[in-house]
Design a protein around this nucleic acid. Structure first.
Length: 806
DNA sequence: AGCACGCCGACT
DNA sequence: GTCGGCGTGCTC
């Protein structure tokens, strides 16, 4: 028997299955989807691999190596996931092994240990420098010892002579937690009798017997029994000696702890719109087709309740359900909401879990003990079977795209898995991505709209403050008089304010403080990025660049300034302006620690602070009834991003915060400060007008040939030397030209926005295309011929449908 | 990635 | 004449 194995060597040249011989003793056990250890390369170094196929034909040309060992007793990947991995690797120009690893919890990735093993002790002991290392050991972990120069030469010599050799060990870090468990061996009746005849002073034994009388006939972790009864270790030992109980080791899940118990919730009554959406969605469950819906519902329209009820329906029909949310929305409140409805059958997968917890949650899914999975991006690979519905909430969110290897978009994966399972896919958002909305327009997705708020409070009024005027009048460039007045009013009335500092695109473009003009690219209609070091303005999209102009090209005033401010500085200024206000700052720095977000939000939710000042993370999913003012300090920084999605991102962000104020009985107010009060993204956000924005943005995308009318691919070439990187980039561009096909545009090569990253210079090529018939295979080939690039010490990344252009 | 093979420069 | 530097090719 032979097995095709994908080995854990993530390079372009080894991105293919290798055939190994399966020893007879493994034949009955081995299955596709298992992890194995195989010898690889000339030195037969042991590496982890995945079995992707088994076969019987022995028509191999070469002598095959044997699989060393099986890591798993059960396949960790299903056939579905193996096929998906193959598709995803090809589609996204990723290494198969990287995708396979990404599908599993972190701990299941092998760790490798390099050891030095003594072969000829006599000769090793003859080296005085090495005595301290090998005196007591025959094998030493290379990482555990730091070697001096003399020792290094000594080891080198011995390796050459064969007196020492290098060993490789594959370590599987995935460990189930095992605890001592107990089970009664006697019937309740017998136990009751035993209790009768017990010495009266044997209090602990009596206590244990009472517990056992009402215990089920199954193993229960001993520590849980201790918690309930308070009996000691010795008592269990005695009970075992008496033959009352059986004790053995048992697996126990590391369940993430929750501070307070979860209250079970019942389905809420749906309003008419919600009910109509629910009927349509649930009607497609369990059918033999896969339907995709775009659920477009304004903030507060009750999308989550619909999700919960559709998932409940799927469970009812014996199917499973998956719900994806952006990482930062996966707050304890959200988890609580889902667990409140589905209880123990929910598995939660997100980055806040420890490795052990994550592994255990994953196993609960794998074993079919969890029927509902809630998680962030990577949860899309959860090993659910018989999926009835997949939900992607806030489907427009950029965090669904993994931006480093392996690159994938959870939406694509969800689409694929929904197809496989004939499941219903629901994309939900108040501000859908243009791609999804356009598909709904074309009828590829079914569009469901929710236009009413579930808890009939009206949308807040949004006012826009023109910061050009503020500055002209000698005002502060961070806090306009209007905003300051608003904050003061809230402080007086003891209501809360949320202030958002839009940090995207921070401090790297020029802005004329006289007229608000920002230098833009002639080819792309994108804002030029300031490269202060080179004293240049550069378009990150097509490479267009000009020297920094001394005066504003629009109005001639010498008032072009670099733009941007940090949250820390804003907090300082704010505190100086309102010395008595209690301010909470929420940004990357203050939320780095585990649980910090929860703590901050709880503090604010309890009303222990007046102002919450933060980056866009405060825009998502937060719901504080006492907040009546939301201020956006700098709405336009994200407009200036060198990215064709800049307007879309800005609109989505503003629409989201605009829906946050005054959700309870008190009316809300939103103040947006901007240098571009007339920009359509800001205007449409002001009027809560998604449709208007969609129409206008689609027109622009059409004109400029961007997504969703054109697909995009970004190639990045990195090299230690700038000239080399450029040379290779141009060579690649030339090589690709014949494959471009009709209606395909290649932009660049252009220099990366950060000239040097990790000591490498980057160049980028962006290709816009409609038909990838010749282009995509050419790019696959480029992956394979990457050998040549590697020789030149260059790196190449291919990013399909990139979300950022930095 | 990591290892062997191989072809040129500074040594015993 | 050899040790060892790194550039090159290959891993079932």
């Amino acid at each position: 028997m032979e097995a095709q194995i994908v080995v854990d060597v993530p390079t372009m040249q080894t991105n293919q299955p290798y055939t190994y011989h399966v020893a007879e003793r493994f034949e009955t056990v081995i299955e596709p989807g298992m992890r194995v250890i195989v010898p690889f390369g000339r030195g037969n170094r042991q590496v982890q691999g995945f079995v992707i196929r088994l076969m019987d034909d022995d028509s191999h040309q070469h002598e095959l190596k044997d699989i060393t060992d099986l890591v798993d007793l059960d396949a960790v990947l299903t056939d579905e996931l193996l096929i998906l991995a193959d598709w995803l690797a090809k589609r996204n120009f990723a290494f198969s092994i990287s995708i396979l690893q990404a599908m599993l919890p972190n701990v299941m990735r092998a760790k490798y240990h390099k050891t030095m093993q003594v072969v000829d002790r006599k000769r090793v002991m003859a080296e005085p420098d090495l005595l301290t290392i090998f005196n007591d050991f025959d094998e030493v972990d290379e990482e555990q010892v730091s070697l001096s120069k003399e020792q290094l030469t000594g080891i080198h010599k011995l390796l050459k002579q064969g007196a020492l050799k290098i060993g490789y060990q594959v370590q599987n870090r995935a460990r189930a937690k095992r605890v001592l468990a107990v089970k009664p061996l006697k019937t309740p009746k017998e136990l009751a009798q035993l209790r009768q005849i017990l010495r009266p002073n044997a209090r602990q034994q009596a206590c244990l017997l009472t517990y056992l009388m009402q215990a089920k006939d199954e193993f229960v972790p001993q520590h849980l029994v201790v918690e309930q009864t308070g009996v000691s270790q010795a008592t269990f030992k005695a009970a075992q000696a008496h033959g009352w109980i059986d004790r053995q080791m048992m697996e126990e899940y590391r369940l993430p702890k929750l501070t307070t118990p979860i209250e079970t919730t019942r389905p809420l009554v749906l309003n008419q719109q919600q009910q109509a959406a629910y009927d349509q969605l649930s009607g497609t469950l369990g059918t033999t087709t896969s339907d995709t819906f775009l659920l477009e519902g304004i903030t507060g329209s009750g999308k989550t309740e619909i999700y919960l009820q559709v998932m409940a329906k799927a469970i009812e029909q014996g199917q499973t359900a998956m719900m994806l949310v952006p990482e930062i929305t996966l707050t304890p409140q959200m988890v609580r909401r889902v667990k409140g409805r589905f209880g123990q059958t929910v598995a939660v997968l997100h980055s806040g879990l420890s490795d052990g917890e994550r592994y255990d949650e994953w196993r609960r899914v794998k074993r079919g003990e969890a029927k509902v999975v809630v998680g962030a991006r990577s949860a899309v690979f959860a090993p659910l079977t018989n999926i009835g519905v997949i939900i992607i909430d806030e489907e427009h969110d950029a965090s669904y795209k993994q931006e480093d290897n392996p690159r994938y978009h959870a939406r694509d994966v969800a689409r694929w898995r929904a197809d496989w399972h004939h499941a219903t896919l629901i994309l939900g958002s108040a501000t859908p991505s243009l791609e999804s909305r356009a598909r709904a327009q074309k009828g590829i997705y079914q569009l469901l709209q929710l236009t009413e708020r579930a808890l009939t409070s009206s949308l807040p009024s949004v006012s826009i403050v023109d910061m050009r005027t503020t500055i002209k009048n000698g005002g502060d460039d961070l806090f306009s008089p209007e905003l300051l007045a608003g904050i003061q009013e809230r402080l007086t009335k003891q209501e809360q304010s949320v202030l958002m500092l839009n940090r995207r695109g921070y401090a790297n473009y020029l802005n004329c403080q006289a007229c608000g003009y920002k230098p833009t690219c002639v080819n792309c209609d994108l804002v030029l990025t300031l490269h202060a070091a080179q004293h240049e303005l550069v378009c990150h999209y097509c490479g267009y660049h000009i020297p920094v102009p001394p005066v504003c090209p629009n109005c001639g005033a010498p008032r072009l300034r670099p733009f941007g401010t940090g949250t820390e500085k804003a907090e300082e200024r704010l505190q100086a302006l309102f010395p008595d206000a209690r301010i909470l700052r929420m940004d990357f720095d203050t939320t780095r620690k585990k649980g910090a977000v929860d703590k901050l939000l709880t503090t604010f939710g309890k009303g222990q602070a007046d102002i919450l000042l933060g980056t866009q993370m405060i825009a998502k999913g937060l719901d504080f009834p006492a907040v009546t003012l939301v201020g956006v300090l700098n709405a336009d920084t994200s407009l200036a991003l060198p990215d064709f999605r800049a307007a879309e991102r800005t609109f989505q962000l503003l629409a989201q915060v605009a829906g946050r104020a005054g959700r309870a009985d008190k009316p809300g107010q939103v103040i947006i400060q901007t240098f571009n009060p007339d920009h359509y993204a800001i205007q449409y956000a002001k009027h809560h007008d998604y449709e208007g924005f969609y129409q206008q943005e689609m027109q622009l995308r059409h004109t400029w040939q961007y997504s969703p009318f054109f697909f995009t691919i970004q190639l990045k070439i990195g090299h230690e030397k700038q000239a080399e990187a450029a040379k290779i980039a141009y060579q690649l561009a030339d090589w690709l030209k014949p494959y471009l096909g009709p209606q395909t545009v290649m932009l660049g090569p252009s220099a990366g926005s950060v000239a040097r990253l990790k000591n490498k210079y980057y160049f980028r090529i962006v290709i816009k295309y409609r038909d990838g018939k010749t282009l995509l295979p050419a790019l696959s080939e480029l992956m394979q011929t990457g050998q040549e690039l590697q020789r030149q010490h260059a790196t190449l990344t291919i990013d399909r449908d990139p979300m950022t252009f930095v």
